[in-house]
């Protein structure tokens, strides 16, 4: 078993309260399923859409957003899977995909001393 990070990017905003709630409920169900199947390591945290960017060189601090809206990371989750193929397969159930967003699946580097 190895650990992986899911980074959620982009995704259309919901167009109504009802839609917003339905998407939220899909996420709740998906997260729950990951947990029940023993894949959940850390549910993670949602991130604000705005922030600051500290740049190399003169260390200037500028306001976010830092990228196109579709590239902004909206949150992350840590999961456990057999290998990256399984981690990617599990990510296919993520509700963000229905809203035009992506899930980036990244293995967490192992510190094998």
């Amino acid at each position: 078993m190895a650990e992986f990070a899911y980074l959620y990017r982009g995704g259309q905003r919901p167009s109504s309260p009802e839609q917003s709630q339905q998407i939220m409920q899909k996420w709740v169900a998906w997260m729950k399923e990951l947990g029940e199947k023993g894949h959940m390591v850390d549910r993670g945290q949602p991130l604000e859409q705005s922030g600051k960017l500290v740049k190399a060189g003169n260390r200037s601090v500028t306001d976010g957003p830092f990228a196109e809206a579709k590239d902004v990371v909206g949150g992350f989750t840590l999961i456990r899977a057999k290998d990256i193929a399984e981690a990617a397969e599990l990510a296919k159930g993520c509700p963000i995909l229905e809203r035009g967003g992506d899930v980036e699946v990244r293995p967490i580097m192992q510190m094998n001393m």
Binding site: S20, M24, W27, V28, M31, Q45, P46, G75, T77
Partner: peptide
């Protein structure tokens, strides 16, 4: 609503 969704889904 956005905040509620983001936080509740986690």
């Amino acid at each position: 609503f956005c905040r509620a969704s983001e936080i509740w889904k986690v």
